[in-house]
Write a protein that binds this DNA or RNA. Structure first.
Lengths: 292, 292
DNA sequence: AGATAGTATCTAAAAAATAGATGGTACGGG
DNA sequence: CCCGTACCATCTATTTTTTAGATACTATCT
């Protein structure tokens, strides 16, 4: 089977001829001789074994087959542009893909707009965002499976990771509206321990400082925890923004507690590997998320 | 801004070098001199302004940037193959796109497998299927907005369209299980006329021979009619296959009627314009649908 | 009919792709 | 450790392709 023998230049010539309406006009536009365009189109017709233009009139007009080829050509050249763009961002920013591991607890209203800005600033960058929970974020960054992590600060520090403070997430203790806990007023840890807790937990089994009850279900997403709380499975600790809708709908109640510090504000951090090369993209993301 | 200056040949060279593991092996595989491959890669590196290979070792190895470019190149060359494929089918079958207007009433179990076979036989053909109702099918074919129509035969004949008999669709009269009509035994048109009818109707407002009741809602899809019947809006006439699930679930009841002929078997036809050029694709579709 | 704008094709010149030869480097096996 | 093998870059000469310019012919408008 014969290979594709057409060239991108031929396709570019085709599109310009179509746009300008004639071989001569296209040649003038390109600053080339008319015969060049004539040859390009002729060769393309030979390569594709298709007549693209009807030349019987004064101006060449596309045949139906020609129109179909023009559509395909536009698409192909767009892909070629994309390849160039990827190459350019590779050359400028040393990177073609950025993997972000973001704990949903560490997200706030600034994250999504920042991602939009990222897509606009680096239009050919490929971005991958995943949402691990708690320590899984740091693990992904440590193992190089993510370039940057957004995580809530756990009790331990990261000796091996670089980090920058981002902000704080307000946490609330919630439970289904009809639950017995709602009638007990201000609660202490002893009271909470008597009821089933729904704990947001990563894949790393650990003794969480947040586990207050021996009766404990574990889920891997804050949204899952909220849904279980709504269903009445038990009480849980989640970011205020995740519980907002449920509270507004009257399905969830906030419990007032007299818990020890740390206050129910959880600091969130941006983390990355010390040995990571800070290229243009990394620098942009770090600056953006820390400053906005 | 500088344009893309790389060529498809350079990308092909890149992929073959990667596949064969060295410039020399790639050159042998292509029956060319090694210097040719060397130049192709060098020029590509210049055009993209990126180092693709690390040549320090005995065998060249891709740089990380090179790997990203290889991915893009594979994709782009695949698109180029597709363009060739489209061109070839254009040249062989005179057509790049086939529009099928199929009344859902005329469909049966043979249609979808035939479409699968179509996609396999003409892999680069672009297919568009829409589901107009009743006379709208013939209208689309007449106006050239569809190449082929699948329609149920209405009382009138198509003087201006070519057609082939396909088969017959069994029709049933259905109503919600709790509806008053279910208690009346065998029905005549007078009885039906007393209750609201849900009529499947095209955009052409017409006096349908199926309209038996003056109380009549019109919907443009058999599935819409089935849903309305389930909801208890009224009785309706639809193909047996469309009512099957609802009947099995006990939500719909079939009414026994003593209606005039035509029997509740509705012939379905394949239609196309007399003046349509019967190319390879048209011929294949017509033969396939009529014979299977 | 004449002026104008268009395309195909021919010829010659410029540019690019290719082959072949040569020198230098990495790597593995005696 | 050294030698044979396999590799790549680069140089030169040659072939092929692309391009420009000139010319002949056709369509269209006035």
């Amino acid at each position: 089977m014969e290979q594709n023998r057409f060239t991108l230049d031929q396709l570019r010539a085709l599109l310009i001829v179509v746009e300008k309406g004639s071989f001569s006009a296209a040649a003038r536009h390109l600053g080339k001789a008319q015969s060049v365009l004539s040859h390009h189109i002729q060769n393309l017709e030979i390569d594709l074994d298709i007549i693209l233009f009807d030349r019987s009139g004064r101006y060449p007009t596309l045949t139906p087959a020609g129109e179909a080829v023009v559509e395909q050509a536009k698409f192909l050249l767009q892909q070629a542009d994309h390849l160039s763009g990827v190459a350019k961002s590779l050359q400028e920013y040393q990177r073609e893909k950025l993997v972000i591991a973001a704990d949903e607890m560490a997200l706030d209203g600034r994250f999504d707009p920042s991602m939009l800005a990222l897509s606009q600033t680096f239009p050919h960058l490929s971005v991958e965002i995943c949402h691990p929970v708690l320590k899984d974020v740091a693990t992904m960054v440590r193992e190089g499976r993510a370039d940057i992590g957004l995580t809530v600060q756990m009790s331990d520090v990261y000796d091996d990771l670089a980090f920058a403070r981002l902000g704080a997430t307000k946490m609330v203790v919630i439970v289904e509206t009809g639950h017995a806990l709602t009638e007990l007023g201000t609660l202490d840890t002893i009271a909470l321990a008597r009821y089933r807790q729904v704990l947001v937990s990563g894949t790393i089994q650990e003794n969480s400082p947040w586990q207050l009850s021996p009766l404990c279900w574990r889920v891997s997403s804050i949204w899952g925890a909220v849904e279980l709380a709504k269903a009445g499975v038990g009480w849980t600790i989640v970011p205020a923004f995740a519980a907002k809708d449920g509270i507004a709908q009257g399905k969830l109640a906030v419990l007032t507690t007299k818990l020890d510090p740390p206050e129910w504000e959880l600091p969130s951090d941006l983390i990355w590997r010390h040995d990571a090369r800070i290229d243009g993209v990394m620098e942009w993301v770090i600056n953006r998320l820390c400053s906005v």
